[in-house]
Design a protein around this nucleic acid. Structure first.
Lengths: 237, 237
DNA sequence: CGATGGGTTGAGCACGATCAATGTAGGTGG
DNA sequence: CCACCTACATTGATCGTGCTCAACCCATCG
């Protein structure tokens, strides 16, 4: 189960803990591309995690604009926080066909009561999500479109590598330019132009679904990207 | 202690829990205006909360630009997450002279081991911070400067009211226009013009330090502001 | 085949940035 | 008490990044 793998990047798990988590999974289901796996205003009784596929947390404004506030990749909990704050603030959509699993809030409560170490590791997930949010805020507020794009690509590269979805500096990026725009706060047209620039400069290539980082040092330099905020280090917590 | 008051907005506390928290506070200290209470890259052994004053979490970019990623008001934990993720990602500065208190990570660990209900309430803090971040992302990405400003003022109004710092629809807002700009991702000049507009339209007044909301319904309407994301409701958690 | 979803291109525009002064109030030192 | 300084707010002029609108292209799929 990929989310267990992810917890193990933060700290070691005992066999008991691993088994407990395996046993906690209620049900798996497929979510077709384009469909909401979480709807805004719902009060779910379980938390959902991604097993396969990409998902986006988004909100829609009156004027029809959409802003994506988080991109989720396999292994990510999509609404772990719904355990503590009942009403979901935003919807989460399947960007590709997804397979998701759920853990009942009741089970999570049990973990918080009887397995503090596991509870802390789950909380690390929430904290890291917050750190990613802050990076997005910095990028939206003070970086140029080009730098912002570079930063997002760096982030996705590192996150996907952490779950084994990167081979040879290249990975599947099944986002449309419109979705990228909604993540970055840019128009589709401008996303297109920024990507063309990055390609022309030999920083990335993007053929079909696969995005390849051709010049990681320079991309990272442009983005001022520092992966520390993802806390991908095993340490006692 | 204002942060205990804040936890009680999420759920009821037992007397034991209250006493435990009171006893957990290690030391109070004053932080002069303009000084960092948390430095980037530190690995603190305690978490800090604000007793009095305003603080801002920020990061600086190579090009000298600054982005504020969170504004903290009395009662807020400023780096509760540093308990779970050792290295702090951003610095936190005192915007006004502040009084802060700290709780040792060791103590927080004890709470997570033996007082799951308290641990959950502390986690709610982290979750709500995340929800605020997402609102900021939406506002930065897809709202106009005017709407964004209105949204920030609405947010501060509700958060400050929740800690009793609002009287008669008006409150102390000790932020300079430059600091507002760094929060919104705007230039100081533009902040000035946007504020003038809001004043001209009779939505707010700002004399000296005190900001008064003159037309709450319309301000809220402009910002598409919905306070739900702050989870200011007492419920069992 | 036509429809659909996504990528690409061009022209014109606007929101907000930048640069440079000016204003104003408090605070400090002579 | 005045001269000066500093921090912050305000104003005007100009500039540029990124938006909007409108085509057009291309591949896939029914």
């Amino acid at each position: 189960m990929p989310f267990i793998h992810k917890l193990e990047q933060y700290d070691r798990l005992s066999d008991t803990e691993r088994q407990l988590l395996e046993g906690a999974i209620v049900r798996q289901r497929a979510v077709p591309k384009g469909e909401d796996m979480i709807r805004e205003g719902d009060c779910p009784a379980e938390s959902t995690f991604l097993i396969k596929g990409f998902a986006a947390r988004y909100s829609l404004l009156r004027n029809g604009k959409r802003q994506i506030t988080a991109l989720h990749v396999p292994g990510d909990f999509v609404d772990l926080h719904s355990f503590l704050v009942k009403k979901t603030d935003h919807a989460v959509m399947a960007i590709t066909p997804c397979t998701v699993g759920t853990i009942a809030h009741e089970t999570l409560r049990g973990i918080s009561e009887n397995h503090p170490h596991l509870a802390r590791l789950l909380a690390v997930n929430i904290v890291v999500d917050g750190a990613i949010h802050r990076q997005w805020i910095v990028a939206m507020g003070r970086r140029s479109a080009r730098e912002h794009m570079a930063h997002l690509l760096c982030e996705l590269f590192v996150r996907l590598r952490a779950v084994g979805l990167v081979t040879d500096d290249s990975f599947d990026l099944p986002l449309t330019q419109a979705e990228l725009g909604d993540s970055l706060g840019l128009s589709t047209v401008h996303v297109n132009r920024v990507l063309q620039d990055l390609r022309k400069e030999g920083l990335i290539t993007w053929r079909g679904e696969a995005l390849a980082i051709e010049d990681w040092p320079r991309l990272q330099e442009i983005a001022e990207f520092d992966p520390t905020f993802l806390s991908l280090e095993v340490e006692p917590r």
